[in-house]
Design a protein around this nucleic acid. Structure first.
Length: 228
DNA sequence: TAGGCCATCTGGTCCT
DNA sequence: AGGACCAGATGGCCTA
């Protein structure tokens, strides 16, 4: 099995590896950002309100980073994980191996690379909303990525709501020009085309009026948007 | 004790 | 050739 085939195999088994998370739960994660996520990931007891202060209750757990010693290029292979070099020189008949020094250098590089990746994940954790207190367990890697994704989607949705509101206010409402321009400039960096439009959240024309409340456009009226 | 998560080692592949 | 990236294997730590 070559590397690419291994990738496909791993992707296929990826979900089954995460036995605690049903695949449909992951599907729902893409559409929502709330307790379902944590409920699926860590059990219902871990779920808290998303907007609240304690999204997670991972009890206390030492940072996994603490398990990692300082980056030590001379780390012996037996420190963690097995080493196929433990049997070096004992004639397996396979491809000739790199010199020991080269192997150590490659290992060190890989270790650095993974540390950089973990640093980036820490950076991501620091900017997504979940409880950061020491009593809360650090988000796992997969949880961090899924949470970040859903957070981005949620922000995009909020932006879209804001855009609708501005459009509504600009329509026949007496809004000071300074306020209008301020809002517009705030939203300017987020061009309409750059914002992800959610499946199922069709943006109605602002010209359509609500049937129940004719004064309001239908696209910002819950009465209208909830209609099938 | 089983399962989840993680760090590390390792070999393969691709890119510069 | 050397480095980056990837995924499998392995073993340790922690929690339910």
């Amino acid at each position: 099995m070559n590397c690419r085939e291994q990738s496909a195999h791993r992707a296929a088994q990826g979900m089954s590896d995460m036995k605690s998370v049903p695949s449909d739960a992951y599907m729902s994660l893409a559409q929502s950002y709330g307790p379902t996520f944590y409920g699926a990931l860590r059990g219902a007891d871990s779920a808290r309100d998303f907007a609240g202060n304690s999204v997670l209750d991972f009890n206390s757990r030492d940072s996994s980073d603490d398990q990692t010693g300082e980056d030590d290029d001379s780390l012996e292979p037996s420190a963690k994980g097995g080493s196929q070099y433990d049997n070096e020189g004992k004639g397996s008949g396979k491809k000739p191996r790199e010199p020991r020094s080269l192997r150590l250098s490659i290992n060190a590089r890989e270790r650095r690379r993974m540390h950089d990746l973990n640093d980036a994940l820490d950076g991501l954790r620091s900017v997504i909303p979940y409880a950061h207190s020491p009593s809360v367990r650090k988000l796992s890697k997969i949880a961090t990525l899924l949470l970040a994704k859903n957070y981005i989607l949620m922000q995009a949705q909020a932006l879209e709501e804001m855009r609708r509101l501005v459009a509504y206010l600009n329509q026949g409402q007496t809004l000071s020009s300074s306020m209008t321009s301020s809002l517009n400039s705030t939203l300017a960096p987020f061009g309409q085309s750059s914002v992800y439009t959610y499946p199922g959240t069709t943006v109605a024309s602002t010209n359509e009026k609500c049937t129940a409340f004719p004064a309001a456009p239908s696209n910002i009226c819950k009465h209208c948007t909830d209609k099938p």
